[in-house]
Simulated scan of single mutants.
Amino acid sequence: MDKGLTVRLRQDKLIPLDVDFAVAPGEAMALVGPSGSGKTTTLRAIAGLYRPVAGRIACNGMAWFDSAAGIHMPARQRRAGLVFQSYALFPHLTALANVMEALNDTAREMRREAAMALLARVHLDGLEERRPAQLSGGEQQRVAVARALARRPDVLLLDEPFSAVDRVTRRKLRRELAELRRDLPMPVVLVTHDLDDVTRLADRLCVMHKGRILQSGTVAEVMTQPASAEIAELLDLAANEA
């Protein structure tokens, strides 16, 4: 498809991968599986932080990676907003400055105003001048989301975005992200081990194991009609780990 994200990755060595999926604009795809199943590697490949052996990644018709054509667009040139599991904020910069760092495509005199608007969008009004160490885990996560959106991304990538916060904060952040997602006209790829994240945030689900997609479909289809006993076991494991 021309619009949205298409991902096809193949490699046998290092980290085995056999991945093929597409995410339409405004749609969220969750990648679920045990540790070592290739979820985060797939996300990093989309962002340009990992170069797979073979395959193709395209967003809105533009090839970001194509092994056959010798294309590997650097991460900084890909319009991908990535929220890391650890948030990866600059510790010496304020929340406002962290977001402004991602506004390279915005005129310098407009960056502060744009960053303030993004922080307000994630409910951080009044905390703009605090550094990461002065923010709670949930507040740091909101800064990371605002920074990802500052790149005006064509795709939003979320790597275990709630794993570092407590259960109560996780529920609140999940609600906020679900509300935000309704206003995002871009594909979203979510890596998670928590099926509550999947049911509340995703439209479709890919179950991964040892680098392969075992089953994909709507969240309801996969969770109520697992294609094999192995998939049912992996989903049950994810549910019990949450």
Results as ranks from 00 to 15, higher is better:
residue 32 V to I: 14
residue 85 Q to S: 02
residue 34 P to R: 12
residue 67 S to N: 03
residue 90 F to K: 09
residue 103 L to N: 11
residue 115 A to T: 03
residue 81 G to C: 11
residue 30 A to G: 14
residue 104 N to D: 10
residue 96 L to R: 02
residue 69 A to G: 05
residue 125 D to H: 10
residue 56 R to G: 04
residue 58 A to P: 00
residue 30 A to E: 03
residue 55 G to N: 08
residue 37 S to L: 09
residue 65 F to A: 00
residue 61 G to Q: 06
residue 108 R to A: 14
residue 37 S to T: 10
residue 86 S to D: 15
residue 89 L to A: 12
residue 33 G to F: 00
residue 123 H to K: 09
residue 66 D to V: 03
residue 119 L to R: 00
residue 44 R to F: 14
residue 100 M to L: 07
residue 54 A to N: 14
residue 107 A to W: 06
residue 86 S to E: 14
residue 110 M to E: 15
residue 60 N to K: 05
residue 49 L to G: 08
residue 77 Q to V: 00
residue 46 I to F: 11
residue 65 F to V: 03
residue 46 I to W: 08
residue 33 G to T: 14
residue 86 S to Q: 14
residue 73 M to L: 08
residue 100 M to H: 03
residue 82 L to W: 03
residue 88 A to T: 08
residue 82 L to V: 12
residue 124 L to V: 09
residue 37 S to Y: 00
residue 111 R to H: 10
residue 78 R to I: 05
residue 72 H to L: 04
residue 41 T to N: 08
residue 80 A to R: 02
residue 85 Q to A: 08
residue 50 Y to D: 11
residue 42 T to Q: 11
residue 40 T to D: 10
residue 90 F to Q: 11
residue 45 A to Y: 07
residue 41 T to Q: 04
residue 82 L to E: 05
residue 38 G to A: 13
residue 92 H to Y: 12
residue 44 R to E: 13
residue 91 P to N: 11
residue 105 D to H: 15
residue 67 S to L: 00
residue 126 G to C: 08
